[in-house]
């Protein structure tokens, strides 16, 4: 009796999890830009994976196996959030413009620096949380950097919080 109940429950969880997973993947294929696609993928990475893991845990019963599944899911939840955060931050720094509703309600690729001046200041700073002083000597002004940082937010000279920081118009969006 109990076994049948557990079977039904785990079957329902597995099926629902697979459905959520598929919905997230469909969203990733059909959404219009990078940020909305990330939003869709988070559905499959939280609900989809979580429900499928619940189904597998119910099948495994109280054992080491259940603990392992729980560990995998916790790792996926933690790293999924971190990876999404890093991805969106890198995309913003790279100059990808999110699609936002324009005045007439249609989606327009908007430079969000215009909307949020605070964000412009943060984008003007290097990605690393360290200041040049913490890293050691500051980089030379005319920076002989192998990886030429995109103009506007180079590691040197531009680290002081400059409230008037504007993105370089020559910055190319991908």
């Amino acid at each position: 009796m109990i076994a049948l109940l557990v079977d039904i429950l785990s079957g329902a969880a597995l099926t629902a999890g697979a459905a959520f997973y598929l919905i997230g993947a469909i969203g990733m294929t059909r959404m219009p830009d990078v940020f909305t696609r990330m939003h869709a993928v988070s559905v499959s990475e939280t609900m989809g994976v979580g429900l499928m893991a619940l189904g597998m845990i119910l099948q495994a019963g109280p054992s080491l196996l259940a603990i392992k599944i729980a560990f995998v899911v916790l790792v996926l939840w933690a790293t999924g959030a971190v990876a999404t955060h890093a991805l969106s931050r890198a995309a913003l720094h790279d100059g990808v413009k999110p699609l936002l509703a324009g005045p007439d309600g249609r989606l327009v690729a908007t430079d969000c620096v215009d909307l949020f001046p605070e964000l412009g200041v943060r984008l003007a700073q290097p990605l690393s949380s360290e200041t040049p002083e913490e890293r050691g000597t500051p980089l030379p002004e005319d920076g002989a950097v192998i990886a030429e940082p995109a103009p506007g937010y180079g590691p040197a000279g531009n680290t002081g919080a400059n409230p008037d920081a504007e993105p370089d118009p020559t910055r190319e969006g991908r």
Binding site: Y21, A25, I26, T29, V34, R37, S44, G80, R174
Partner: peptide, 29 residues
């Protein structure tokens, strides 16, 4: 089967993705 279908959709996005970030997102998925 559901996960396989999702996987193929992710592959489509990885091949189509206009920006590198789309491809990276698909690779993660």
């Amino acid at each position: 089967l559901g996960v396989l279908a999702a996987l193929s959709l992710a592959v489509i996005r990885a091949l189509k993705g206009p920006t590198a970030f789309d491809r990276l997102l698909a690779a993660n998925a």
